[in-house]
Amino acid sequence: MTQLETAMAIMMKVFDTYAAGEGNPGTLTKGEAKTLLEKELPGLMKGAKNQAGVDKILKDLDFNGDSEIDFSEFGVLVCTVACVCHSRCSKK
């Protein structure tokens, strides 16, 4: 597989691993999403100013308002974080 194909496969596996914890195995509950962020993006979580900000991000990700994060919504999070990181790295 190419590097991008590998990255996509890893992203899908990470989502599926955390989504399988509780509730619907095709979506992340708020608890699953927080655990995923804490374990998979610890640097981002350490840099978060407050927990209320993290809760707002999770709420804003839930575009369809079903109180869960599906893979499409998760993809938006990953792409947004990647864009922010890329922008910061490009400025250095």
Rank of each mutant, 00 (worst) to 15 (best):
K49P: 10
A33M: 12
F74C: 03
G23C: 08
K56W: 09
G23N: 12
F71P: 05
A52I: 14
N24I: 10
L61N: 02
V78R: 02
V54S: 03
T35P: 12
D55P: 10
G53C: 03
V81Q: 06
M45I: 11
A48I: 05
S67Q: 14
F63A: 15
D70V: 06
K56N: 14
K49C: 10
G23I: 09
D55R: 04
D70R: 03
L58N: 12
G26I: 03
E68G: 01
T27C: 01
K59F: 04
E32P: 06
V54P: 09
V54W: 01
A48G: 02
T35M: 11
K49Q: 14
F71E: 04
E32H: 02
T35N: 14
A33S: 12
F63L: 14
V76E: 14
V78S: 06
L41P: 14
G31K: 10
F74T: 09
F74Q: 04
L41Q: 15
N64L: 00
L58H: 06
E73R: 05
G23P: 08
D60I: 03
Q51V: 02
E73I: 08
M45N: 00
T80P: 06
D62M: 04
T29I: 13
K30Y: 06
K59L: 04
F63P: 04
K39R: 12
G23Q: 05
E32K: 03
V54C: 00
V81S: 07
T29W: 12
E38V: 11
E22I: 08
V78H: 04
E73V: 05
L77P: 06
L28N: 07
C79H: 05
E22S: 12
P42S: 09
G47Y: 10
E38K: 10
K49A: 15
L58A: 04
L28G: 11
V76L: 11
K30S: 14
F74A: 02
G53K: 00
L28W: 05
E38A: 11
N24L: 01
E32Y: 02
M45V: 11
G47F: 11
K56F: 09
S72Y: 05
T27L: 01
L36M: 12
E22D: 15
G47R: 15
A52F: 07
E73M: 07
V54F: 03
G26T: 12
V54A: 01
P42V: 10
K39P: 07
M45Y: 00
A48P: 07
L28F: 03
K49T: 13
K56E: 15
E73C: 03
D66G: 02
F71Q: 08
V54N: 02
E32I: 00
L36S: 10
E73N: 05
